[in-house]
Design a protein around this nucleic acid. Sequence first.
RNA 1: GUGGAUAUAGUCAAGUGGUUAAGACACAGGGUUGUGGCUCCUGCAUGCGUGGGUUCAAAUCCCAUUAUCCACC
Length: 381
Amino acid sequence: MTMHAVTFELIKKDHKTKARRGRVHTPHGSIDTPVFMPVGTAATVKAMRPEEIKDMGAHIILSNTYHLYLRPGHELIKAAGGLHKFMNWDRAILTDSGGFQVFSLGDMRKITEEGVEFRSHIDGSKHMLTPEKAVTIQNALGSDIMMAFDECAPYPADHNYVKNSLERTSRWLKRCKSAHNNTESQSLFGIMQGGMYRDLRCQSAQEIVNLDLPGYAIGGLSVGEPKELMYEVLDYATDYLPENKPRYLMGVGSPDCLFEGVERGIDMFDCVLPTRIARNGTAMTSRGKIAIKNAIHEKDFDTLDPECDCYTCQNYSKAYLRHLYKSNEILSSMLLTNHNLHFLIKLMEKIRYAIETDHFSAFKKEFMEKYYGNLEEVKCL
RNA sequence: GUGGAUAUAGUCAAGUGGUUAAGACACAGGGUUGUGGCUCCUGCAUGCGUGGGUUCAAAUCCCAUUAUCCACC
């Protein structure tokens, strides 16, 4: 039995669904699950100070291997005393491996058995990322949870391509595990691939679970496929993962997807959605999304969400927020980001409470009706 | 009063005889799911100060007129 820096405690299971209430323990504190993790790609959750994210109840945030490797460089962050110290965040950090960037940065890259050769999006310089390198970088960063270096297959992709890709990802995972030697302070999570194919999801799961890692992620979803298809994959994907380890659905963060994921046994989520749409003028509220730039809010002196107790909703009107957005003021991003993150983090708190008190399904129904107007339309999204 | 210049969308403007009048900003709507994002997409003048005329064809040429600006009396 390997000793892991990160451990999972399963506290309660929902009776009607696969939803679970748990707790992830890390060297930088514990995280109640299901949890939504704000994304701070470049060692900062855009427009937020660490204190703000803490105050709204976040206990873990994400950062990114690829981006920090290119700028400012992992050696510099190591010299600064590690990522926690560098960015003034003393709670848990999960770092993505750069596998997703290989997928999203598209063109200028070449995937081989050894790893991925790519060009920097910053200056065009040539680099090679391998499983070993991704681990080395994440070791230097000192994140609590390191993600395996994987290939996120695109959608659509044929069975043969996805099979080859997942098998290579499994081989890469073994290399990641071998390269990772400070298991007492950092934990490595594996990533399941397999696209939209059930047999491949099963195969991928078996291969990664064999390595007895402290946690497993489901990757390769939310890459452009219809939501219904993602739910279909999730229906069985979580069953292939061990019950006593945290399950992390990568890149998912719209409220409906969070509910659907939790319902299918997901414990951890991350997504740029709340922070990105905040910067682009959209707020998530208990009554659905609000595009603050719309003319209808010009003289609306009410707050974004009457049910919200975030800093923004305590102090500012929609008319003011609209003005800030239209004027391109920095405070617009700050206030809307604060609100959206607060909204999702509180939503997850409510979901955890609902699981604890055995009314998850009822809470889901209540929330969805209010957020999306009526449930019939949600299926069409 | 005389001479000159300019009048094209809410604003700044391209176009100087030939198919549905660039572009930018503003305005209006939409998108965004392991962040290459204070971003991307879409819409927005049947109309070129006004009235005539020339021409197969005029924002473009001609005449008149109005407004604004600049010089000089």
